[in-house]
Amino acid sequence: MTSRPLRVLHIEDAELDHELALAHLRRGGQEVHTLRVETEADYRRALHGQPWDVVLSDFNLPHGFTGLQALEILMHSGLVLPFILVSGAIGEDVAVQAMRHGASDYLLKNNLARLAPAVDNAIEAAEMRRAKRDADERLAQSQQQLRELAQHLQASVEAERVAIAREIHDDVGGSLTALRFELAWLERHNAEPEAQQHLHAARESLTHAIEASKRIMQNLRPAILEQGLVAALQWMTQSFRRRSGVDCVLRTSHDSLQLPAGVPLVAYRTAQEALTNILKHAQARQVVVELSLGAGVLSLEISDDGRGLSREDLAKAQSFGIRGLRERAGTVGGWIDLSSRPGGGTTLILSIPLAAEGGDAASEAAAWGNS
């Protein structure tokens, strides 16, 4: 029972029935503030005219207006209000239909003794629904903020990768190139065999350092994406095969693809992470990377014939590694599926609906992903 007056919107064409309902509410200890309406137009105006605690409605009303129609109007209004049917004659099937459509309760006019407790129960239930709705809205807002934060972090990570790659290219790469010229000069001006032997070893180390810096820059900033996702995946699978000795093939339904900005980078990073994990953990002999586009959905599937994942491994797969991939996929509206059978290999699938808005991508991702 509230300390303030109970605010009741009553849809009733009979003044006597209206007064009888009020009498039962007051008998239940309620101080009641009420408004009686008869027509649909008056009901619609009153519904939003002021706050109400409960709506009571007769079933049969003038001008073809019914209690079920009043209930439907309330359900579409966005208001969370208890709605109680109070009728002189209502069939069980109609009562059940009303309850299924959101009515809080139904009473017969010849049994109004339980009207007050029914109203109290309905108001309490409505307050719980409002609290749940508010909690759901706050949760949805928090989830949206987390998605926006994840997108921002992904953008920041990619921007930082670009900055590091640029520094390696400009500073380290420049220094290594200058060192190569210095070694070449020493080789030309010092013919002693022992010196030549050391210079040759230094050149080999320098060549290794230059190749390593190029590989690091490629991993940080995949310039190969400028040639398109298909070309980038071809380069990646070939490089993986050379580096690991594992048979790795690319199957694709298209020789080239025109994709929205950001999508190629997400697909590239997903394949890169999957191949890295396969190399570290799978003990696989064969890896298949499949890229396809159908029904407006880009699909990237990476499968291996390795040892597979146990239940414990799959539980670990829900940690930050796969979460990171899922968050990255979410930046372009995509999702990740991971499946495995112990001893039967593992399959990771990235799906991106190209027709849907996928969210903001990193500015550098947009620059790399135009092909």
Rank of each mutant, 00 (worst) to 15 (best):
R323K: 03
P117H: 08
G64T: 12
S310E: 09
A191V: 09
G91I: 13
D136T: 06
A201Q: 15
L107Y: 00
A232P: 07
N121D: 14
D360F: 00
A209S: 14
A23E: 15
G308C: 03
G174N: 09
E38C: 13
A122Y: 11
K214D: 15
A202L: 12
Q218K: 15
L146D: 11
G334R: 00
A131G: 01
E40M: 13
L74I: 10
Q218N: 13
R161P: 01
P193M: 13
Q154A: 10
Q197D: 08
N121V: 10
A223F: 02
G91M: 14
H48K: 04
A95D: 07
N110G: 12
T270Y: 12
H18D: 13
A284S: 11
Q145K: 13
E31A: 08
A155D: 09
A41C: 08
T270Q: 10
R36P: 01
E192G: 09
G321Y: 07
R7C: 07
Q145S: 11
I224W: 00
L85F: 06
R221A: 07
G359Y: 02
G306Y: 10
H208Q: 13
G358A: 07
E12S: 12
A201G: 00
A282R: 07
E31G: 00
V55D: 14
V332E: 11
A295S: 06
L225F: 01
H169I: 04
A232N: 00
L112E: 10
D360P: 05
M75C: 03
L348I: 14
E327N: 10
H198W: 14
V266P: 10
P117N: 05
T34G: 04
S104G: 03
W185C: 07
I123H: 10
V266C: 13
A14G: 07
I224D: 00
L233G: 05
A201W: 12
L146R: 15
G330A: 14
D58F: 01
H10L: 14
E273T: 15
A178T: 06
N190W: 14
H281M: 07
L279E: 12
F240I: 03
N219G: 14
W335V: 02
L16I: 10
